[in-house]
Design a protein around this nucleic acid. Structure first.
Lengths: 144, 144
DNA sequence: GTGATTGCAAATCTTTTGCACTAAA
DNA sequence: TTTAGTGCAAAAGATTTGCAATCAC
């Protein structure tokens, strides 16, 4: 499953979630959603935007990432201390977290089967189930 | 499930992992390990220490938590943006994360069965598998 | 005594916020 | 025009670091 929504362009995507299509939002949406599934930090996206000659401030990148998350276009992931990752894949899936590189990799939802999930207490509902498989290099020799 | 190690006192615990038993480390070890399984932030532990009339600085609490983690006495958990939790249970288990209260609750390892875990890439090994079940108060149905 | 440990405050790093300015509708 | 959105810099938190003072051995 690629992008959770299939819009021919960023304009329609923004319109569909009721966000005013400003130049910054359009540019960031293109960077985020036109390259398949991605996991980016605010800092990374800001750097990418600058590299693509898109004038945008870091504060706006943060605001935009949160607006996109609220709109359901992104998922926020907290796996690394003091830093948030934003995932363009909002479907059911899990993650490898590569500790050596601090990068995330998707695991399709059907590749992890969880049985006998305990029920939450009364009056509570499950918001999300996250499975994070932390991996690291095993040998002093780097392959790959 | 109590502490993963059974030492009659904090002194032996510290000695067993090669940490010099200073007054601060002894006090923090007692606060951490003599009350069953706990999930604390540095700030929380610092407050507890002060409440218990233990003179210790926040910086030392951070240092100590990391030393204990390196020594295998604690597990560091990252589930909440911008804040680390330290878990006195270092055995195989998972967590409920209560979003309303930002608190963690253990789930015994055998209550979550994971099948068909994907293999990590070549040259990589699994460091840890974390399952976090995020729960929140049931949404009040105002309408619809 | 000697080196490890601690405390304090300053420094870092990520993220948020206030407010004047700019742009979309 | 009218209001939402943006940029900048300052603020806010959490965590770390430098270094002199202190403590364990």
């Amino acid at each position: 499953m690629e992008s959770n929504r299939t819009y021919s362009n960023a304009l329609d995507l923004l319109k569909s979630v009721g966000l005013r299509p400003t130049r910054q939002r359009l540019s960031l949406a293109r960077l985020l959603f036109e390259r398949g599934d991605r996991h980016v930090t605010a800092e990374q996206l800001h750097s990418e935007a600058l590299a693509a000659r898109v004038r945008v401030s870091l504060a706006t990148v943060y605001n935009t990432l949160h607006q996109f998350t609220s709109a359901g276009l992104l998922n926020e992931l907290v796996v690394d201390s003091g830093r948030s990752y934003f995932d363009t894949n909002t479907g059911h899936h899990h993650h490898f977290f590569h500790e050596n590189t601090s990068t995330l990799e998707d695991i399709p939802g059907d590749q992890v089967r969880i049985d006998s999930l305990p029920a939450p207490a009364e009056g509570r509902e499950i918001s999300r189930v996250e499975v994070i498989i932390r991996v690291r290099d095993e040998a002093p020799r780097t392959s790959d």
